[in-house]
Amino acid sequence: MMGTTNDAAQDTSNQKTQTRRDFLKITGVGLAGAFAAAALGCISVDTRDGRKLKAWRTSSGAIVHDPNLCVGCRRCETACTVRNDGKASAYISRIKVARNFNYGAAGVTAAYAVADGQQGNFRLVGETCRQCSHPACGDACPVGAITADKKTGARVVDAKRCVGCGACEDACPWGMATVDPETKKSTKCLLCDGDPSCAKTCPTGALAFYPWEEAEALLFGTDATSGATAVSGASA
């Protein structure tokens, strides 16, 4: 279920990013542990104070949404769910455009007519999975159903192991992981085996896959162009 050395990402820049971030977090594990994490996708490690932490291989990248180009057709949502779930849905789409579509991320305000959204200034802020270096969803999963995909490094749900408890949904600071009310299984962005269906279907190129370093800057940087603010003190 976890990546092997052979399948691990070959991009050394990815690994650099990963190690830089995770060294700070996994104090006391030591270099050997971190390198093992990078190579294997993800492993559990024990911290000095006795907590269990997972170390993750960095994703090959992530999908980023451009609010300036988005026309709000929401074809990405059905492209995502038809490919990955065999049915069409907005709620479980791993690309969340519907959510901020009407009134922006802030929801209805007294100033809705000039705020984001189709009822306002027409700016559409879609949200995409950040494939976090240290994914809260994966850490929260009590059964280890979320791991880094061998090929893409995306944090993917193993539906066979998922128990539908919703821990990932509660944990994700960006509200991306979603339990499908019909199957009781968690859904989150799996990067479609390296060929994201949403990006292919976007009629204006507003959705695109970026290699990790670029994606990280666009999604987490101070001039982030995509997505909404995390609900509470989230970090990558």
Partner: peptide, 13 residues
């Protein structure tokens, strides 16, 4: 022109 809009699941705006 801010952008072109339209309907659900339509690529033509």
């Amino acid at each position: 022109t801010v952008r072109m809009g339209g309907c659900a699941h339509c690529p033509i705006r």
